[in-house]
Amino acid sequence: MIIDTHLHLIDQSALSYPWLAGVPALNRDFLYTEYAQQALRVGISGALHMEVDVDPADIDAEISYVEKLSKTPGNLLRGAIASCRPEDASFADFLERQRQNRFVKGFRRVLHVEPDELSESALFRENIKRMQGTGLTFDLCVLPRQIPQAIALADNAPGVQFILDHCGVPDIKGKADHPWREHMVEIAKRPNVTAKVSGVVAYADAESWTVETLRPYVEHTIGSFGWDRVVWGSDWPVCTLGGGLTHWVAATHAILSGSSEGERTALLSGNATRIWKL
């Protein structure tokens, strides 16, 4: 059984995604039916929808869109990680509103395309700290050089469960281990941070990567955090940039072939079930 903790759905007839204009390979609809056909074939039994950086005016609409989908018979969707704007004074009201919706399991503010100063502001950090005690998680999508900013957020809000996306976004294609490798060891010292082993095929050379290309990055992530603080995600459809969902699932199983059944279960479903109470 696999719980996919990082699924993006794109429906341009329903929501606005300004950033897609700059990424032609992803600038089309990626709907639930297309994902589900592939997911069921590779053993995915549940999924969390990850916000897709919609236009800020569509944040609430995206939550409603995914929640409505989840109510169709046999649907794989178990919850949503919603977009948010902790840099805004309105975040406190937004947080209180979303706390009433059990379908919302956490939040994310994409940081890797924003100035570092965004997450360093007093208001941003104060608002993230407001999440303490809510049971809601906060996903960290940062570049390796920004991991120190992620560490600062985790230290400032020890009562918030943070999820570090995509193994910390290593530059696999460029074979750039540093400072990613050292930063991963450092952030893993924070007990309130869990790492997401998700979609790293998108950071490798799409034409030439093999299991052994990905293995050092996945194994270093697991080795740094331990089996009880890692979860799995597809990052579909971004993973299509590196071969797609079935290739990523197959590579994951190959990398995990030497681990115990308990370790594999923890990464692929157990930890996610516990963290998000699925």
Results as ranks from 00 to 15, higher is better:
93 D>E: 10
269 S>V: 07
24 P>C: 06
3 I>C: 06
48 L>M: 06
118 L>R: 10
63 I>C: 01
257 S>Q: 15
207 E>S: 06
127 N>M: 07
150 A>N: 00
56 P>G: 11
180 W>L: 01
185 V>S: 15
159 G>N: 10
188 A>W: 10
28 R>G: 07
218 V>G: 01
201 V>P: 06
123 L>A: 04
191 P>N: 15
265 T>C: 12
13 S>M: 12
213 T>L: 11
272 A>D: 04
76 L>S: 08
83 S>P: 01
6 H>L: 02
259 S>E: 14
108 R>N: 00
271 N>G: 12
143 L>K: 08
231 V>S: 13
24 P>A: 05
25 A>W: 09
83 S>L: 01
114 E>S: 04
210 T>E: 02
253 H>Y: 11
80 A>C: 01
212 E>K: 08
19 W>E: 08
235 D>K: 01
71 K>M: 15
201 V>G: 04
188 A>H: 10
92 A>N: 10
166 H>N: 04
192 N>S: 14
131 M>C: 12
277 K>E: 10
81 I>R: 00
237 P>S: 02
38 Q>P: 00
185 V>Y: 15
207 E>I: 05
73 P>C: 15
66 V>G: 01
8 H>K: 09
34 E>R: 05
156 N>D: 14
201 V>C: 02
99 R>K: 03
246 T>I: 11
60 D>M: 05
232 W>T: 03
104 V>W: 02
185 V>R: 15
88 D>E: 05
92 A>W: 06
124 F>N: 02
270 G>R: 14
148 P>T: 08
36 A>S: 10
43 G>C: 02
165 D>W: 04
184 M>F: 06
202 A>F: 09
20 L>V: 11
57 A>W: 04
73 P>W: 15
171 D>A: 07
272 A>L: 10
180 W>Q: 07
251 A>L: 08
200 V>M: 00
128 I>M: 04
80 A>I: 02
41 R>V: 07
120 E>S: 11
256 L>H: 06
194 T>K: 14
217 Y>W: 13
62 E>C: 00
91 F>L: 00
183 H>F: 05
190 R>Y: 14
25 A>V: 07
272 A>M: 03
256 L>C: 07
235 D>I: 04
179 P>N: 09
171 D>H: 12
219 E>L: 15
98 Q>S: 07
267 L>V: 12
33 T>K: 15
76 L>Y: 05
107 F>Y: 07
155 D>M: 11
146 Q>F: 01
20 L>A: 06
228 D>K: 15
83 S>T: 10
165 D>F: 07
269 S>D: 14
58 D>C: 05
33 T>E: 15
221 T>F: 12
181 R>P: 01
3 I>S: 09
111 L>C: 01
86 P>W: 00
102 R>E: 13
117 E>K: 10
257 S>M: 14
5 T>C: 09
150 A>K: 03
132 Q>C: 14
162 F>S: 01
238 V>N: 05
39 A>Y: 04
35 Y>A: 02
250 A>P: 04
52 V>H: 14
122 A>C: 14
144 P>K: 09
69 L>I: 13
56 P>E: 02
90 S>L: 05
15 L>H: 00
109 R>V: 00
177 D>N: 13
76 L>R: 11
188 A>D: 14
5 T>Q: 02
41 R>C: 07
146 Q>M: 00
108 R>T: 00
173 K>F: 03
244 G>I: 03
52 V>P: 13
5 T>I: 00
86 P>C: 07
63 I>M: 01
218 V>H: 08
245 L>N: 08
93 D>I: 06
